[in-house]
Amino acid sequence: MSTNKITTQKVNFKVFRFNADEDYLPYYEDYSMDVTSEEVVLDILNRIKWDHDGSFSYRRSCRHGICGTCAIKVNGRSTLACKESMTEMIKIFGNELTIEPLSKKRAIKDMIIDKADFWEKHEQVTPFLDAEIDENPTLENLVSPAEANALDEADLCIQCGACHYACPVVEISDAFMGPAAFAAAYRFEADVRDGNESRLTDVNQMGSGVWDCVKCFECAEACPKEINPIEKIGKLHNMLFQSGQADSNIATRHAVGFVKSIKHNGVLDEGGLVLYSELAGIVKHVPVALKMFSKGKIVPPWGITKSDNLDEIQKLVKSSSTAKF
């Protein structure tokens, strides 16, 4: 049992306020409150509404970290309000906290956003078990622990949108499906009971596809359920290669190009990799490449210092490769 005493400290909040029906621009309201070490972020939202301004609006429901409705941002950090302790927020950011909706540009009223883009993308990945069901089974359908573990906790997703609106690609590109939709796709692709035959192809082709992740790990940090969506995106990449569905495009050639380069040099041939990935598209890089060359930033293939003991690397590439393209 923890014997920690409840402590109190003063925190200044800057709170995003906006009413799409009335306001031309959003503004921030300041509130100063004594915050106890036991409170979660949702307690603060409640106190703003109950003690300061009854018109303050936000979504909440279960208060148990399971309905996924109360996600907001504190100092830019995606946060499930009912789960995140104020002590942790103060520890990270100090006593000046900014409360904002998950996506400012999608704000309807205060913390409430229009999450339509999230749901539309989620829906497109066939986010349900697609299986032929025997309506009169004589035996249970057993799933082994190993098969269940293959989901890698992707089934814990509560669709709160924390990762989706933390993703910098989603923020600037409507075509990108986003980490939550991809994690959902993985969750059902990895399910031994699922029989859907087009989901993986869909994921590869819908929107801007599955290859535009910038690998920033914002989604991994944002997820209140620690699902690690970026890892699931990587697994979808692996599945596409393993199932032979990875078509030849810039991103797939880029991934495969590393093996080619490593086999040849141990180290990367940076120019060779861009050429292999882009093919004829290489021409668009020529102006910058010429400038880089003039500054000593491009090493020609014959000038690359290969790794020592290259034979070891070549042997390992041969014996340890598990994928084909």
Partner: peptide, 9 residues
């Protein structure tokens, strides 16, 4: 990027 193609390698 290599891990997207071949994680074990």
């Amino acid at each position: 990027h290599l891990q997207d193609y071949d994680d074990f390698l």
